[in-house]
């Protein structure tokens, strides 16, 4: 069970106070109406799901109710950093090769 540092409360708190909200830094397309079905589908459903370092969004639901980001290793479950929404992570993630998938 995780021990999570809330960057807003500036304390470590137990996982039970938090709720995970999926991949971090998912940006809603600025011009949603101009998106193709594929672009919209990518935003809606397709995720990095890495085995290793991952940036994810959590909410301090039982505490300050703020959303914030965590860089966490999805295998060792170690949390490398937590940072506020709008801030940039300090831990660099490995490059992932991603070609443009064809819509077949």
């Amino acid at each position: 069970m995780f021990n999570i540092y809330c960057p807003y409360c500036e304390e470590h708190r137990e996982e039970e106070e938090f709720h995970p909200s999926g991949q971090a830094h998912l940006a809603r397309p600025a011009d949603a109406d101009a998106c193709t079905d594929k672009e919209w589908g990518d935003f809606l459903y397709f995720r990095k799901n890495p085995r290793g370092l991952h940036q994810e969004l959590w909410q301090h639901t039982a505490g300050c109710r703020k959303f914030f980001n965590i860089t966490r290793d999805t295998v060792s479950y170690q949390i490398l950093e937590t940072y506020k929404v709008g801030q940039s992570p300090q831990v660099k993630l490995p490059e992932v090769k991603l070609e443009e998938p064809r819509h077949g």
Partner: peptide
């Protein structure tokens, strides 16, 4: 997801 990444695409999957 890891295998899909090797082939260069993402899946609508979270593990």
């Amino acid at each position: 997801g890891v295998l899909a990444g090797m082939a260069g695409f993402q899946l609508p999957i979270e593990s």
